[in-house]
Amino acid sequence: MLDSALNVFRQGRNLARLMEGLWVTLEISAVSVLLSMLLGIVVGLLMTTRKPLWRAAARLYLELVRFVPILVLLYIFYYTLSRNWGINLEAKIVAVLVFTLWGTAEMADLVRGAATSLPAHQRESGRAIGLTESQINRYVIIPQAVRRLIPGVINLTTRMIKTTPFVFFINVPELTKVGQQIVEVAGMKNYMASFWVYAFIFFIYFAVCYPISRFSGFLEKKWEN
């Protein structure tokens, strides 16, 4: 019975299709995380400037994006933009855009936290031993800021991977949707197919996210000193 149930992975290109779905998931997550990190650093630093207007703008952006559900953002950028303003964006672009908007807000908050928690005299200590400003950034400020950021960034990455199934909403066939397609076809004859396919998907998410969070734990432990 197990053997026949597992046949679902041997039929045609089913396994390859799941992997292609995983690739879509990882592609969207990876690009979004990367962009979020870059933009999040900019927005996060804006939040720490002394210019109240910049700070207010960054704050507003952060609160807005965080409180609007992802599905609503996907809807607005995929459907509303095209219907009401004729801006017809490709689904994957919309996915990356929305995840980046969200990730940037999260990242900005992390950066703000890391930047404000670094004491000012770390920079002065660097100056006092004759380091140039760029050497201070390189050897003193950035390593410490990165250490403070890494756990949050990794947490954000896994959350992003786990949120990608939402893109089914704008018709992108990522891992979970491919799984559903397979289940609905194979399930007509194979009642255990849905169990095995979803168990497999569960395993894939675990296999992807677990090492990432373990890596984070490893770094935290390493840098605890």
Partner: peptide, 17 residues
């Protein structure tokens, strides 16, 4: 053309994609 990808036998993606 907008089609279903998981509603056999009307619109679905078979095991070969």
């Amino acid at each position: 053309i907008g089609v279903f990808s998981d509603k056999p036998p009307f619109g679905y993606v078979d095991e070969n994609g």
